[in-house]
Design a protein around this nucleic acid. Structure first.
Ligand code: SF4
Ligand code: SF4
Lengths: 133, 133
DNA sequence: CTATTAAGGAGTTATAATGTCTATAATATA
DNA sequence: TATATTATAGACATTATAACTCCTTAATAG
């Protein structure tokens, strides 16, 4: 029951982009250095974020990543879901009882957490901590 | 980012005990059959629960497990912590900034979930769904 | 055309979860 | 006391997943 390092990297790169360049493009290398992770591995995570619409990419010289136009709406939950997938954290139900209580309690609790993560926008953090990285 | 099967088993055995025998002792075998898991593996999980004070055990003939006297106070969170440990789900902080915001947001969100899990008692489920297993 | 950068796929390694086996300890009962 | 029963413990094996590497391909700017 731990968030993966990939999620950690994703959150940090998003914050990095929000702080340093809402408009300019940034390549993998500088971010990989900051996070102390290999560029190739971080690249995979960034590709996942692109597919989820969290960032935009362009190849070639002068290319790199940048935030999309709606970046101020992006929440922690969006980023986490982009990496971890939207699946439920608990799926121990054998379905021998429709509307079971164990499953419902767990889902409800997870819902509370997601509610909070949905309200936390990456743009808020960029304002409050402009030099966090 | 998924709860382990062990946590699933733990929750189910606790509910089993709460429903079938708040006072009588139950061995591993019947529970292992219900959950379709090997008795030896379930045994380890039960031992963890014993050490955490979630259940009480006695060896020998006629032995087995039973709930402690304060069983009505036991919450989902207690059981989950007994298995998963009390550690934070997110620890991606390199500590290069005291009171960082990413870590705080994640911890706050986790706190919301735990708050909910703390309020959900296993005894409530036993009342509401007496024949769930 | 060439340098630069992202994307994709196949593989490897590391780590943790899951499960098995065997031996030991404790208890009730005959 | 002797025996059957049950939990506990540790070492081990297996499996699943995360984490990471390497190499190739595609796209773009100049
Ligand atoms: S969560 Fe409920 S319905 Fe699902 S397997 Fe467990 S007891 Fe049965
Ligand atoms: S969570 Fe904040 S302080 Fe910790 S490593 Fe990330 S940016 Fe730095």
């Amino acid at each position: 029951m731990k968030y993966s390092k990939a999620t950690n990297y994703a959150l940090h790169t998003m914050l990095y982009l929000a702080v340093t360049s809402p408009k300019q493009r940034v390549g993998v290398q500088p971010m990989a250095e900051k996070l102390e992770v290999s560029p190739t591995y971080l690249s995979k995570i960034l590709t996942q974020l692109v597919k989820a619409g969290m960032i935009e990419s362009s190849p070639g010289a002068g290319g790199g990543y940048k935030l999309p136009s709606n970046w101020e709406e992006i929440s922690f939950l969006d980023i986490i879901h982009a990496i971890e997938g939207p699946v439920s954290m608990f799926d121990g139900c054998l379905n021998h009882n429709p509307g079971c209580l164990i499953q419902r309690v767990m889902d409800d609790a997870e819902g509370k957490m997601e509610e909070e993560l949905k309200q936390q926008k990456i743009s808020d953090l960029a304002e409050k901590a402009p030099s966090v990285l």
